[in-house]
């Protein structure tokens, strides 16, 4: 899957905006949004928030996890945890990328937040890579990947599935041989 497709999926997530206009509910096919009252926060999908922001019709409120201290705490938890920690958002990386690049003046300390998100991402990706390597080396064709986000899973696709498929083929080729070896030992 292309990263832009992961982004496409992530854009459905809701974010809080403060519109500068008033309008009744909008009945989208995917559900209702609004009503919009100037100055009052309302939740809309990110794709819509970005569009409205671009047209200068709203201000975007950063989700509360998009904060330097909170992100650093998450990073520390991730480092000390053997498994993967649950992220505040299924698409934390995409949401961060999208919101931080669209809204420099709405969100304070943008650069620091960007760094904090990237650090968290790097820790998790590096852990993922080691886990993948261990998984391949110890064999087996099944693993549990709770709390990995879509973009992270996508980073090892198709490398990991293809490697597993290949090992499966290598082992199947031998199975014919082993059965024959066992038979010839009679």
């Amino acid at each position: 899957m292309d990263p832009s497709e992961v982004e496409f999926i992530a854009e459905k997530e809701l974010v809080s905006i403060v519109p500068n206009f008033t309008n009744s509910e909008v009945h989208l096919i995917s559900g209702d949004v609004g009503p919009f009252r100037a100055g009052l926060p309302v939740n809309v999908p990110i794709w819509m928030a970005l569009n409205l922001r671009q047209r200068q019709k709203c201000r975007i409120i950063a989700p509360d996890w998009l904060d330097v201290e909170k992100l650093e705490a998450l990073k520390e938890e991730e480092k000390s945890n053997r498994f993967f920690t649950k992220m505040p958002s299924e698409h934390y990386m995409v949401v961060a990328q999208l919101l931080l690049s669209a809204v420099d003046d709405d969100i304070p300390r943008v650069e620091e937040i960007r760094m904090a998100v990237k650090d968290l991402w790097d820790v998790r990706i590096s852990k993922l890579r080691s886990s993948v390597d261990t998984f391949i080396k110890t064999g087996g064709s099944h693993a549990r990947l709770d709390y990995l986000t879509t973009m992270e899973i996508n980073s090892v696709r198709p490398l990991l599935p293809h490697a597993l498929d290949f090992i499966d083929r290598l082992q199947k080729a031998s199975e014919g041989a082993s059965r024959r070896d066992m038979a010839s030992q009679d």
């Binding site: 064709s141 099944h142 693993a143 549990r144 990947l145 709770d146 709390y147 990995l148 990991l160």
Partner: peptide, 8 residues
């Protein structure tokens, strides 16, 4: 429920 996996 809600767990994620890789398998055949």
């Amino acid at each position: 429920e809600n767990s994620q996996h890789i398998m055949q």
